[in-house]
């Protein structure tokens, strides 16, 4: 009974239940296979196409991670500049918000024109989707420093640099990690969108091809792989967060306590 209640088993149980509902719904309402395939058909197709699916996952994963890393590398320093300079904030922030209202799907073909069919345009789309949450949340992280804390550091004769890496940066890390979790899932979406508009590889390309061939089991297989990829990347960041921020309120063990 203990194993049923473990937090890793619970979501698996829920997925099994949903698959059961899916299967039952198809039988009960007599849904034709060209609308929704049966779970078993998806499983068969996924097994048959497994080597191809796995091979096509790699470019998507590359584009996702590339876009995500670019988001962090550009987003975090940009957020720092915005948090520390009102002038930069007033110039850049409205433009950032404006850039987010441009539909990325609509401008993705432009990147294909500019950069061709390779990895790069996909990375750019993943970056465009992924970096905005990082900037917004990191700015908040850097700005949410108690004024007493700033006074304390000043009273200690702290230099700006020491204040940054001993106080401001660790203080912002929880917000940065939270935004990275949002960013990585959006980067997956970005990579797939990039593959939709201009690519001959990747899971997004598989999705489009399967769509064209009315191969619904293959489409579902590709969707499952995409979801698993998103979950896996999310979990990796979650673990990194727990390792790096054991002190944060969200990671504290209930057993610890002094009184």
């Amino acid at each position: 009974m203990r194993s049923i209640n473990s937090p890793i088993v619970r979501p698996v149980l829920l997925v099994l239940f949903l698959v059961l509902v899916w299967d039952l719904a198809i039988r009960l309402f007599d849904i034709p296979a060209y609308l929704i395939p049966a779970p078993i058909d998806v499983a068969v197709q996924m097994y048959a196409q497994w080597p191809m699916l796995l091979a096509e996952t790699i470019p998507t994963l590359q584009a996702t991670i590339g876009g995500f890393l670019l988001s962090v590398v550009i987003g975090v320093p940009l957020a720092m500049l915005i948090a520390y300079s009102r002038t930069i904030e007033s110039y850049v922030y409205p433009l950032l918000v404006f850039s987010q209202s441009i539909p990325k799907v609509a401008i993705a073909p432009l990147f294909v024109v500019w950069f061709g069919f390779g990895l790069f345009p996909k990375v750019i789309v993943a970056f465009l989707l992924g970096f905005f949450p990082i900037v917004v949340s990191t700015v908040l992280g850097f700005k949410s420093l108690e004024s007493d804390m700033i006074d304390l550091a000043k009273s200690m004769g702290s230099t700006k640099l020491k204040m940054f890496y001993k106080i401001s940066l660790p203080n912002a890390l929880p917000a940065i990690f939270a935004s990275m979790k949002v960013s990585i899932t959006l980067a997956v979406v970005g990579a797939v969108v990039g593959e939709f508009v201009g690519s001959n590889s990747g899971i997004g390309y598989v999705l489009q091809r399967a769509n064209g061939n009315f191969d619904l089991p293959l489409m579902f297989s590709a969707l499952i792989i995409l979801s698993l990829m998103g979950v896996l990347l999310f979990v990796i960041i979650d673990i990194a967060e727990k390792l790096m921020l054991p002190w944060h309120i969200s990671n504290r063990l209930a057993t610890a306590g002094a009184h």
Binding site: E146, L152, S155
Partner: peptide, 18 residues
Amino acid sequence: GPQTDVGIVFQSSVLLAW
């Protein structure tokens, strides 16, 4: 400016959580 010969205690303890 801040003094070397002064220590300050605030209303909140402002201890670093990490």
